[in-house]
Amino acid sequence: MLAKQFRAFKSTLDERGIIFSFSGYLSEGILYSLGDALRQKMALEDTNVTTIKKVFSVFVEQSQNIIRYSAEKVQGRLDKAVELSSGMVTIGSENGRFFIVCGNTILEDDMARLKGRLEILRAMGPDELKAYYKEQLREPPDEGSRGATIGLIEIARRASAPIEFDFDRIDADRHFFCLKVSI
């Protein structure tokens, strides 16, 4: 029963073209290890260098967004300051493209601003995204954003198709947020 259950679980992931999927508490160390494995996997498959860099960049920005903004966090001190943020990062391939999906809980209060930003980015073409990136690079960061705007523009710039995003309400105060990027 045990093997059957988990084989079915793995088959579901395989059928969706998932290379790997991480769910749980994400740290900078996990980000580094997953990113390293991702680059090696793509390099072994002779993926072109530009594509590897784009996928890696989107993976890093998506993961760091979870680490910074997930509404489910544990913080504390062990031998050093530790910050763990809960979320999901999934990488796969479909229709000849790589895709990266991140998912995490966000607060109701942050939803409208995030949605607004993503809608603006989704509507922009490559030249507009490039110009917007350059403009934001020269701006002081928004309050409390720890550099969110520039990270989201970087994600949208590397995408080969318009970004996809969605929000699923959990309760009065929280949503599950997903962002999918194809490269």
């Binding site: 860099k53 890696f56 960049s57 890093v60 920005e61 760091q64 690079l137 020269r138 960061p141 720890r146 550099g147 520039i150 990270g151 523009i153 970087e154």
Partner: peptide, 12 residues
């Protein structure tokens, strides 16, 4: 070789 968006901001 590679830097993320917050490093880009610092470089600027």
């Amino acid at each position: 070789i590679y830097f993320n968006s917050s490093s880009a901001k610092a470089l600027m």
